[in-house]
Design a protein around this nucleic acid. Structure first.
Lengths: 214, 214
DNA sequence: ACACCTCCATTGTGATCACAATCTGGAATG
DNA sequence: CATTCCAGATTGTGATCACAATGGAGGTGT
């Protein structure tokens, strides 16, 4: 009895799934990278059964692509798909931000500001993966306050599909000034301005992806 | 060579997945129904391997629930979850409808009107499953014109999660008059009125689910 | 009559294996 | 030197099996 509340004995395929999902979402895999079930199983010390289930789940979520012959690789997104996913981010994330707004007390805003400083540091270091991870953590921390788990899950699915592409985007990231859109989001939260928040979130989410569409 | 364009030799787990997904989305399974991997495999004449992969995929999409011990059943949604999913439908489906609006020529509108008549007939017959299926077909036919496959996929995920619940909703459906919200959608499409279309889609999508939240 | 406990059937998990399709590398040919 | 073709290696698919955990039914005790 008395097990830790969030520590149900983790199954093998779940462990594989979460690790791969994190890698893909944070851009550790370049678009077009090939994966094999036996290779995954070998890396995680399991047979191919859990590897297959994790891979199939990621394919279903759009995080991986499966050719007609079943070969697995990270997707290379076409421009119209990128535009569509960016629109989805704008649509869903503005809604989540607005829902989080009335519950965003000062402690949350300060936590967001702290995360934002780590984002800035990642940019200064030119560390693309760290930037993607901390940036998504900034957004997720805010959206968690919206108390809308299904909506957040959909947004994370979109992030997942954009993961490898974001890596390609920020791989060419020149070191330097962090964008000020996060600062605008924080200001809108402090001032309780819903309209300004909408604009700030939408531009933050859409801006970077636009310049990726060659 | 020269295979039919949409007929790649269908794998077993894909067949299982599509069949189960269709059943769930169309409300053929009441919330709380239990499923077993061996039972699924037996029904489809396969081993439990394809059944397991299909079930896990459906669990990942929120179409099925898995208890901590791994038992599989259709989800029983709480009220706040239903509200959230209804909001998602409103958000995503208005966007899809607006995107489809400039491309909705007369032939499409007539096809939608034809589908709508089959919806009305299902209501007259009191056939809940047929109603859900034809109603979703009405929406999907419109949204396909939006040329936004990722967005449509997200909406279908939401439909999938609501499937068993919709069944419970329309199981108590009294025979009789079909709602006129579809008629409003068709009118807005004919008149090219974006604002009216937004309102019509949102009310059509939200209305029914509201009265389910006891 | 009700609660609890024990035991067995059932369930999901993961490993292993056989098989067919596919890809890759190199050799043979023009 | 480029192109084609063949064969070995690699990959995903699905079946089968052993195993641990769970759930439910029936019996026992109060």
């Amino acid at each position: 009895m008395q097990a830790r509340p969030s520590e149900p004995p983790i199954s093998a395929h779940e462990r594989v799934y979460r690790t791969l999902r994190s890698r893909i979402m944070h851009g550790e895999l370049v678009p077009g990278s090939a994966l094999t079930l036996r290779g995954i199983g070998q890396e995680f010390g399991t047979s191919m059964t859990p590897a297959r289930e994790a891979a199939r789940r990621l394919v279903a979520e759009g995080a991986l692509t499966m050719s007609v012959s079943g070969r697995i690789s990270t997707p290379e997104l076409a421009n119209d798909r990128i535009e569509e996913l960016a629109s989805l981010r704008g649509l869903l994330e503005t809604e989540l931000a607005v829902r989080a707004l009335p519950r965003a007390h000062l402690a949350l805003i300060e936590r967001l500001a702290a995360i934002n400083s780590t984002v800035a540091e990642a940019i200064r270091r030119g560390d693309a993966v760290a930037y993607i991870r901390t940036n998504l953590e900034f957004h997720r921390t805010l959206y968690l306050r919206a108390q809308a788990p299904a909506m957040l899950a959909l947004v994370e699915t979109v992030w997942l599909q954009l993961g490898p592409t974001m890596r390609k985007l920020y791989g060419r990231m020149r070191q330097g000034r962090p964008p000020d859109s996060h600062r605008l989001i924080l200001a809108a939260l402090r001032n309780r301005e819903e309209a300004a928040l909408r604009v700030a979130v939408r531009t933050d989410v859409t801006k970077g992806l636009r310049l990726l569409m060659t």
